[in-house]
Nucleic acid binder design. Structure first.
Lengths: 180, 180
DNA sequence: CTGGTCATGTAATGAGTTACATGATTGA
DNA sequence: TCAATCATGTAACTCATTACATGACCAG
């Protein structure tokens, strides 16, 4: 049972979903490809943390909809109380920033402009998610008992940190522009 | 040649260092264990991106001090101009936040208090790094031509984002405390 | 008719962690 | 005397990405 496995249990615990669906839902918080998810789901099902029913669809491919078992829910509760691993952040841009002095202004500038753009896209995406959430739960996501609370605080953090990185990019570009 | 390899080249390009030293320098921006670094350095040396001299020490174990070759510097410059991979952030706390509704207030609270503490530690550490850097380069790290510029902008980003996550933790704890 | 989404899977490879291995010095 | 730091390496394992494989539907 690794972290990704608990992540999947956590999503399924809230709402039964297909592997494909879980992959999409998970993206913002834990990047994993379908090739990692499908085998894991099969394993979790074999070990009775999850169960699935095959849902037949006419217009699209059939799907397996997984739901959580009592054993799965118990495992989740136990996991929540166990020590949390430290976060891992790996950003190629940091490593490039370290050797900016080796290159010219134009190349350097481009690096941060691309990241600025990426952040701009992410920002509007997450702002939309947050707005949708606030609609969905009739304005009380700040209540820690609400099932939306977790998503609410996560989206808030995401929006804040993206906004900040965006400002950081602009600050760096500003310095790169000054011919000093 | 993967991202870590370029990261090592980038550090060595600025200052010749031992594998052990590189591991420590790299920690803030790219977490990698010595068991990953040593074999990579050996490979980079075999392929003439790096070269090393064995430095004998009396009080401590001898070390291999790596420095960059012309081929290594050329590879770095080329890498800087190539498209940058998207950052990867994996935080177990996000996944736990998602299923907070499954557990009690006390467990939830502890989760964020622990992260708050971690951020507090990181914050003072990075603030010190930044202060040291500002001393080291006699107050002009904002000059993009300075070899300190890269480190300066990275440390600034680190301090900002840690400070923000710290505030986020406190905000969440505040909500958890309100008996709503 | 081409490319995107939905849908699930396996195989091969690469990246990263943990454990094994050694050994001197220094500070609590 | 116990743990930490410095210093380098290998072996086994797990985790993650890329590539291989299939196939229907829909929009431009």
């Amino acid at each position: 049972m690794n972290t990704l496995a608990y992540g999947l249990l956590g999503l399924v615990a809230k709402m039964p979903s297909s592997g494909y669906d879980l992959m999409l839902q998970l993206q913002p918080f834990w990047q994993a490809k379908h090739s990692q998810i499908y085998p894991l789901l099969a394993k979790l099902e074999q070990e009775d943390y999850l169960e699935f029913t095959r849902v037949l669809q006419t217009d699209r491919p059939d799907k397996k909809v997984y739901s959580i078992t009592d054993k799965g829910r118990a495992a989740l509760r136990e996991w929540l109380a166990r020590p949390t691993g430290e976060p891992v952040f790996r950003d190629e841009l940091s490593l490039k920033a370290y050797c900016l002095w080796l290159t010219d202004r134009a190349t350097a500038r481009k690096l941060f402009e691309e990241r600025e753009e990426l952040n701009q896209e992410h920002l509007s995406m997450y702002e939309n998610f947050l707005a949708e959430l606030e609609q969905a739960c009739e304005g009380r996501p700040e209540n820690p008992s609400s099932p939306y609370f977790g998503e609410y605080i996560l989206l808030t953090r995401a929006v804040n940190s993206i906004r900040e990185e965006l400002n950081w990019c602009r600050w760096v570009i500003g310095m790169l522009d000054k011919q000093s």
